[in-house]
Design a protein around this nucleic acid. Sequence first.
DNA 1: TTTTGTGGTATCCAATCGGTTACCGGAGAT
DNA 2: ATCTCCGGTAACCGATTGGATACCACAAAA
Lengths: 114, 114
Amino acid sequence: MSLRLRKNKASPPPPVCPLTECMAILGGAWTPNVIWYLSEGPRRFGELRHDIPRISAKVLSARLRELEGQGVITRRVMPTSPPSVEYTLTELGRELIPAINAIVGVGLKLKKKR
Amino acid sequence: MSLRLRKNKASPPPPVCPLTECMAILGGAWTPNVIWYLSEGPRRFGELRHDIPRISAKVLSARLRELEGQGVITRRVMPTSPPSVEYTLTELGRELIPAINAIVGVGLKLKKKR
DNA sequence: TTTTGTGGTATCCAATCGGTTACCGGAGAT
DNA sequence: ATCTCCGGTAACCGATTGGATACCACAAAA
């Protein structure tokens, strides 16, 4: 003799999730890091490369263009020599900071436990 | 004549980031969704498949085993017929909920703006 | 004259990733 | 006797991903 399965409809699933929408922004490799390092102010391409040592120029370039296309950052070419480029979080981009901070918070807890 | 470049050392980068640590958990496809649907209580394999219609059994299975290995969820086989398996967030897993909520919050804002 | 600094792009490549399909055991229901 | 339900696994496959390397223009500095 054995127990019966509980009905599958037992508990209704939580409401529709907008997770996918937001993860489409945060999903790419290094994306949260880029946003994190932009969260304290504008930053140049080379500075970001230095901030995130293991990122390749190709990937950093790709991420920046994606984020620009999504309206998360703006790109501004400065009239210097050689020309330098400054990236800044938009208002939309700044709305991502609490999420990034929450992720960082969990990361800190994880580190403490090890 | 043209402007000079500002020194690269101008502003120090923010402190070392534990982002990567946490994103190693949240990074896989569907992972945040799985945690989200577990956030309101234990849930069975088939229920999760139903919650996340486009996920394949293979990927759901992989994610659940990964999360179990990372100590985010527990797996419990119930003595039913046919056997059913219940997944539950651990205490560590519950610490991820604020981050998930923050991500959901941004997703909601994104939806409103469209 | 040569070197340095900047912000990239082009190309190639191996690895990974996730989807698809087929299949499984074992008990209960029909 | 056969079908259904449940929670998977195995094998295969194409697409995507990200890393490595080489290369670019242009101006200023050495």
